[in-house]
Design a protein around this nucleic acid. Structure first.
Length: 398
DNA sequence: TCTGGGGTCCTAGGACCC
DNA sequence: TCTGGGGTCCTAGGACCC
């Protein structure tokens, strides 16, 4: 949208640390670049065909996503935002689907500049399938009769079905099941035996009986995590605790933004799983807080302490992270009669830090233990601009 | 000599999603 | 030399309860 000259060009977007290809234009796919390919393995292809490369820019994508979702919400009585680029909408009471759905699509494209596709069906699983087929059908597809559904699933490859990953696919292939049409003919008991309750749901969904509800109530989340790969290996406990300081600080910011406190903080370390010649070590430990917290001081103290306990000398660490669970609203804290509480002093400091960082940019005020050199910091060499979120990057219209 | 039945909660690990 | 990050749900097994 912001670089229209790239329309029709091969373009790829890289994961964090510029590690893997995570999005490709049709033109880039045609040159044989696959989802998840490591950048360094396709570097020659990129050069040969002059493929345009971008680092991920989640702030920009998140903002554009919000625009699309709020436009969609005008057309559905219930909208369940499933991911950054997908939503399920309820169409109860809409009768003229064949004219309504193309109208929704045109409206979103017109108002946001983002092309979307819409699939309609009696269950989420079939709607996902319809959506995929819609991409080659002008952007919309309505499966509102048993006959249309049977035709749609007949040749649809099982590996593209929602809920089918590597392991389930292996089972299907052993039985020579190639298409969703074949899969759906298996008895219900077979689904239950081989795929437990998930399979039973899938079976119902495939026959047009909705088994996965549309939920527009904001669900209370179960966990919040921050993890990153390092730019270079870390072999030093002090450097490792610098990284954990930053991750725990970010985690605190995220929790405070959602007004949540955590009762458990899990810390984990990883070595490079792709290197068989490196000794592998992937320890993890969960720390239970006496009083749930979301202030940076508490979280950093725990994260760095645990990371030093987990660390083993002589190991090349590649990645680390922190996970907060046992989440409770920050205004429903359970104090403890036997433990001292600072009366919220540290919480006040964290709030002040948030205010300053919001005004002057993330990281303006940070914990000293985050360090200064940061040899582990992310690589982002091909970052696009913050067209919609930074004053300096906003496009000029002449 | 012979030792029940029905639960909950927690954690680790596996499978899946985008 | 270089391989992402953030989630959900389910199951099994252990520890505990009465």
């Amino acid at each position: 949208m912001f670089k229209p000259e790239l329309n029709g060009q091969p373009v790829v977007v890289l994961s964090n640390n510029d590690g893997c290809v995570i999005a490709r234009s049709e033109e880039a796919k045609a040159f044989g670049i696959k989802m998840g390919d490591p950048e360094f393995l396709v570097r020659d292809l990129i050069k040969t065909y002059d493929i345009k490369v971008f680092s991920s820019n989640y702030v920009l994508y998140g903002d554009m996503s919000g625009r699309v979702m709020s436009n969609l919400a005008r057309w559905f009585p219930k909208l369940d935002v499933y991911s950054i680029d997908e939503a399920f909408g309820l169409l109860d009471g809409v009768t003229n689907l064949d004219t309504y759905i193309p109208k929704v699509r045109e409206s979103v494209v017109l108002n946001t500049g983002i092309p979307v596709s819409i699939g309609v069906a009696p269950s989420k699983t079939l709607a996902k399938l319809a959506n995929k087929l819609a991409k080659k059908n002008g952007g919309t597809l309505v499966l509102d009769t048993d006959d249309k559904i049977s035709k749609a699933v007949k040749d649809y490859p099982v590996e593209d079905l929602w809920g089918v990953g590597r392991q389930y696919l292996k089972k299907f292939k052993e039985l020579n099941i190639e298409t969703v049409g074949q899969l759906r003919e298996m008895p219900e008991m077979w689904f239950k035996q081989h795929m437990t309750i998930m399979g039973q749901r899938m079976w119902n969904e495939l026959w047009g009986r909705s088994a996965i509800n549309i939920d527009d109530a904001p669900v209370t989340r179960k966990g919040v995590s921050v993890s990153r790969s390092f730019r270079n290996y870390i072999e030093d406990a002090d450097v490792l605790s610098e990284a954990l300081t930053m991750y725990a600080s970010r985690l605190g910011e995220k929790l405070r933004k959602e007004k949540l406190c955590c009762l458990y903080l899990q810390v984990f370390l990883y070595t490079n799983v792709h290197r068989e010649d490196h000794p592998q070590h992937y320890p993890s430990q969960t720390h239970k807080l006496v009083i749930a917290s979301n202030n940076t001081h508490d979280l950093v103290k725990i994260a760095t302490k645990v990371s030093r306990m987990l660390f083993k000398p002589g190991i090349k660490y590649r990645k680390a992270g922190v996970i907060a669970t046992g989440l409770i609203p920050e205004n429903e804290l359970q104090y403890n009669i036997f433990d001292e509480h600072d009366g919220g002093e540290k919480d006040g400091i964290s709030k002040a830090i948030d205010t300053i960082n919001l005004a002057y940019g993330r990281g303006t005020i940070r914990m000293a233990s985050e360090g200064y050199e940061k040899s582990w910091k992310l690589r982002h060499e091909y970052l696009s601009k913050g067209y919609t979120t930074r004053w300096n990057d906003i496009i000029k219209v002449k």
